[in-house]
Design a protein around this nucleic acid. Structure first.
Length: 560
RNA sequence: UGGGGCAUGGUGCAAUGGCAGCACAGCGGACUUUGAAUCCGUUGAUCCAGGUUCGAAUCCUGGUGCCCCGGCCA
């Protein structure tokens, strides 16, 4: 390891690694990302992925992708595929280092035999319930299993017969012989193997005994030569067992390091809770754009770059924390801002008739997609005609002082087109404004008046005759509270779901060029927000856009 | 005295015995053919009490608060 490999960003983990490199414990950095294929990846996993791959990159090291598939009952190939797709999408590559804990079942079994021969493990016949009883409590020590003193020969015989399938599920376990009086419950002769006559998505019916997490994880890390095994805080208590397995076997010893998992305001982050939202129909699926899953965020219009920046920005530490959703939104907007072409779309249309414009007249304006970089920006022609749509919220009949959009007698600029002045308001029988009459100033073509007079408001618009219709899906946070778990007594997080988290607009009016919008691209609907085609429903031919995130709306804030 | 961990502005992360800083949020202003972006300015913090030291967010002692652990889940 040389000086030029020294990372710029440092945290408590890189401190530990630096020390290891200095004192010679390791001369390289090799990490792993070890998901269990029992669900979809979420933004919390993204933090871990960015951490593991990022740190290895910083040190010129490697990162493995390893599926921790030791529990056949909960795991499925569907998940191993989606997980790989999500990691790739995020921008990380494990080259040919794709592994499965199940790849090592044979080797782990051999190691278990070794533990038995060393007198460090025994076959226990206690039932699950008895075992719980023998384990003791948080404050009281446990008691030795009546089976802990079986002979090595008997243990060997029994364990081999466990593997051979002679015993039913739950009848026996292989346990580490450590210390039933340890204040750390994980060390009270933890189960290493359980009997599970279940079909495994990779090994099929080859095995009917499966290793437990603590044993399998430590050995997998060791087998792969992982130097730094980075996991979340709840495994701190497991580290002594992790170390025990490796020390007892005398094999390569990885260092486990724990960090605080990511939490975000206004959402939940556990697979179990997310699964509930899916199952109970609060969302349309794992990839619902409101979900904090990577597949949901991708569909929503998040970019991998934004998520990576976010992961870096939140930092890493051991203190439990909850990140403001606003920080995520900030990095998202920041990324989208530089990459999204500017287009015009009216979310809630209000018809405007330009009385002094020829009824059958028509013209187009050249408008750059990237107004902030006109030199290099591609341009399209935007059609204009007598009847237009503007945003309903851009007109007020009786505006407050700070409102500088359209109002009776008020002049505003139609972006890139003309200045118009409101001369008439048409209402229906309920008093609702249905149509506006305006006049335009032909001298202001392009959006600038030769006399240099200023207009305060600049509105987006679309030509009624040329507009295309689209469905817009406007998203808001999934929960009403920063902390969804903050539920009244007897309630739970689902009581805090936001009933307005999805608003569907059926008849938005878009500029015609958007007919050729592409899935996977982000567009800024000017003065509204960033939108993208819904990769699922737009595929069916429907014109459906997701609002990834609104623009910062100072005016809305002012109104409060 | 079960064990393990954590405490720095509203939020998150730095400062590794030597000027408490950065980002987001907030507030104010400039600019603006997006009430966006950009730019400028600004409010605001070391859990408490002792101790060591010329000097403590950092080291020591004692408190307080919060989180995790009693799956044959991971």
């Amino acid at each position: 390891m040389t000086a030029e490999n020294t990372p710029k960003r440092s945290n408590f983990i890189t401190d530990i690694i630096d020390e290891h490199l200095e004192n010679g414990r390791f001369d390289r950095v090799h990490t792993r990302f070890p998901p269990e294929p029992n669900g979809y990846l979420h933004i919390g996993h993204a933090k871990s992925i960015c951490l593991n791959f990022g740190i290895a990159q910083d040190y010129g090291g490697l990162t493995n992708l390893r599926f921790d598939d030791t529990n056949p009952i909960t795991e499925e190939v569907e998940y191993v595929e989606s997980i790989q797709a999500d990691i790739r999408w995020l921008g990380f590559d494990w080259d040919d280092r794709l592994y499965f804990a199940s790849d090592y079942f044979g080797q782990m079994y051999t190691y278990a035999l070794q533990l038995i021969r060393q007198g460090s493990a025994y076959v226990c016949d206690l039932t699950a319930e008895e075992l719980r009883e023998y384990r003791g409590t948080l404050t009281e020590p446990g008691r030795n299993s009546p089976y802990c003193d079986r002979s090595i020969e008997e243990n060997l015989d029994l364990f081999q017969r466990m593997k051979a399938g002679e015993f039913p599920d739950g009848s026996r376990t292989l346990r580490a012989k450590i210390d039933m009086r340890s204040p750390n419950l994980n060390l009270r002769d933890p189960v290493l193997y359980r009997i599970l006559h279940a079909h495994h998505h990779r090994t099929g019916d080859e095995w009917c005994i499966y290793p437990m997490y603590d044993y399998a994880h430590a050995l997998s890390d060791s087998i792969e030569g992982i130097t730094h095994s980075i996991c979340t805080l709840e495994f701190e208590d497991h580290r002594p067992l992790y170390d025990w397995c490796l020390d007892e076997l005398g094999i390569f010893h990885s260092q486990q390091i724990e960090f605080a998992r990511l939490n975000l305001t206004y959402t939940v982050m556990s697979k179990r809770k997310l699964l509930q939202l899916v199952r109970e129909g609060h969302v349309s699926g794992w990839d619902d754009p409101r979900m904090p899953t990577l597949s949901g965020m991708r569909r929503r219009g998040y970019t991998p770059e934004a998520i990576r920046t976010f992961a870096e920005t939140v930092g890493v530490a051991k203190a439990h924390s909850i990140i403001d959703m606003e920080l995520l939104e900030h990095v998202l907007r920041d990324d989208l801002n530089t990459r999204s072409p500017r287009v015009m779309a009216v979310v809630e249309p209000l018809k405007v008739i330009i009385d002094n414009y020829p009824a059958d007249g028509e013209e187009t304006f050249p408008v750059p997609y990237f107004p902030f970089d006109q030199e290099n920006s591609p341009t399209r022609e935007v059609p204009f005609s007598q009847e237009l749509y503007i945003e309903r919220s851009d007109f007020m009949e009786d505006p407050p002082g700070k409102f500088y959009r359209l109002a009776p007698g008020r002049e505003v600029r139609l972006m890139n087109a003309y200045y118009i002045t409101c001369t008439g308001v048409v209402k229906d029988e309920n008093g609702e404004v249905v149509e506006l009459h305006c006049t335009y100033d032909p001298e202001s073509r392009g959006g600038m008046s030769p006399d240099g007079r200023k207009v305060r408001g600049t509105l987006h618009w679309v030509s009624a005759r040329h507009a295309i219709n689209a469905e817009l899906r406007l998203y808001d946070v999934l929960f009403n509270l920063p902390n969804p778990y903050d539920a009244p007594d007897g309630g739970d997080f689902k009581d805090n779901t936001n009933p307005d988290s999805l608003q569907v607009v059926k008849d938005a009016k878009l500029e015609p060029g958007l007919a050729s919008a592409v899935i996977g691209e982000s567009y800024q609907f000017m003065r509204q927000g960033y939108f993208c085609l819904d990769a699922v429903d737009a595929k069916e031919g429907a014109r459906v856009f997701n609002r990834t995130i609104s623009l910062v709306d100072t005016w809305a804030k002012l109104q409060k």
